[in-house]
Design a protein around this nucleic acid. Structure first.
Length: 178
DNA sequence: CGAGTTTGACCTGCGC
DNA sequence: GCGCAGGTCAAACTCG
């Protein structure tokens, strides 16, 4: 096992990070961090293992597909789409983009139903790293930004930031039924 | 000039 | 089967 970076650029030991998570439960929202949600499709799995078997089969959409733009799926037949676990959390912030130390490239933006703010889609620019995130502001409370991460980074952060780590200490986890 | 953003079109899944 | 909503692509564009 190589040492994959955990989902977040936590520099502390894993002992500490679990302490951090415990702390969320008792003391959230004091600094704008409102909550965290973990979504898995079926079951809990180890995100660090997940990352091992993705990363390559994401070539999609035929740039050179014999001139026919029908199905963009290069997926094998009958293969179920495997979604990575998703981690959603809310922050109260003026800016949409959390500086989490990774470099992201925006690849889409969509208007979302029942929300006057669009949702933005970002992908990690690191080659071979297929992590995505969605950023959306709540129309109910436009001070709240919901960030959803999908997948786990297979590399270390590009630019360390204390900022995000500090945010982590304010997080709260909500288990989800997904 | 390279990296990142914008934006309309396209694809897919799901509920009715 | 149809329509809607969410998700992705990719060409054009902007910016440093």
């Amino acid at each position: 096992m190589e040492n994959h970076q955990p989902f977040f650029p936590i520099s502390s030991s894993n002992m500490e990070s679990s302490l951090v998570f415990n702390k969320f439960l008792g003391d959230a929202t004091s600094n704008g961090f409102l909550g965290l949600k973990i979504e898995n499709n079926n079951h809990f799995l180890d995100p660090t293992q997940e990352v091992n078997n993705n990363s390559s089969d994401h070539h999609q959409s035929g740039s050179s597909q014999s001139g026919d733009v029908s199905k963009p799926t290069n997926k094998k037949k009958g293969e179920k789409k495997i979604r990575k676990p998703r981690y959603a959390f809310q922050t109260r912030s003026q800016v949409d983009i959390l500086d989490d130390g990774y470099r992201w490239r925006k690849y889409g933006q969509k208007a979302v139903k029942n929300n006057k703010f669009p949702r933005s889609y970002y992908r990690c620019t690191r080659q071979g790293c297929d992590v995505k995130k969605q950023v959306q502001r709540l129309s109910k409370d436009e001070g709240i930004v919901v960030t959803t991460y999908e997948g786990v980074h297979s590399h270390s952060i590009d630019k360390p930031t204390d900022n995000f780590e500090h945010i982590l200490t304010q997080m709260q986890i909500y288990p989800t039924p997904y």
